[in-house]
Amino acid sequence: MDPLLDFTGKVAVITGAAQGFGKLLSQELAKRGAKLVISDINEAGVHQVADDIAATGAEVVAMKCDVSKDESCKAMVDTALEYFGRVDIGVNNAGIAHEFMPLHIIDESIMDHQFAINVKGVQFGMRHQIAQMLKQGEGAILNVSSMAGLGGAARGSAYSMAKHAVIGLTKTGAVEYGRDNIRINAICPFFTLTPMVTNFADEEKQKKMARGAPMNRLGEPKEIVAVMLMMLSPSNTYMTGQCIAVDGGVSAF
Score class of each variant (00 low, 15 high):
residue 192 T to L: 06
residue 125 G to C: 12
residue 115 F to H: 08
residue 202 D to S: 09
residue 226 A to R: 09
residue 161 M to N: 10
residue 123 Q to E: 14
residue 152 G to L: 12
residue 228 M to L: 11
residue 124 F to G: 01
residue 194 T to L: 03
residue 160 S to I: 01
residue 201 A to E: 07
residue 200 F to P: 00
residue 158 A to M: 09
residue 103 L to E: 13
residue 133 M to E: 04
residue 219 G to C: 10
residue 189 P to N: 10
residue 202 D to K: 06
residue 120 K to S: 02
residue 207 K to P: 04
residue 183 R to G: 09
residue 141 I to V: 11
residue 166 V to F: 02
residue 197 V to E: 08
residue 167 I to V: 15
residue 103 L to W: 10
residue 105 I to T: 08
residue 205 K to A: 15
residue 184 I to M: 04
residue 138 E to R: 09
residue 154 A to F: 11
residue 209 M to G: 05
residue 195 P to C: 12
residue 173 G to L: 01
residue 146 S to I: 07
residue 174 A to M: 11
residue 130 I to H: 01
residue 201 A to W: 07
residue 185 N to G: 07
residue 229 L to Y: 12
residue 102 P to D: 13
residue 115 F to E: 04
residue 136 Q to K: 08
residue 155 R to E: 14
residue 149 G to N: 06
residue 115 F to Y: 15
residue 97 A to P: 11
residue 103 L to T: 14
residue 200 F to I: 13
residue 105 I to Y: 04
residue 157 S to H: 04
residue 146 S to C: 12
residue 223 E to V: 00
residue 215 M to T: 07
residue 144 V to I: 15
residue 125 G to I: 04
residue 166 V to Q: 00
residue 112 D to K: 12
residue 101 M to K: 15
residue 112 D to F: 02
residue 160 S to N: 10
residue 220 E to S: 13
residue 147 M to H: 05
residue 106 I to W: 08
residue 136 Q to E: 15
residue 158 A to R: 05
residue 137 G to K: 04
residue 162 A to L: 06
residue 158 A to P: 10
residue 214 P to H: 14
residue 208 K to Y: 07
residue 102 P to V: 00
residue 142 L to Q: 00
residue 103 L to V: 11
residue 132 Q to K: 13
residue 220 E to A: 15
residue 229 L to P: 13
residue 223 E to G: 03
residue 130 I to S: 03
residue 217 R to C: 11
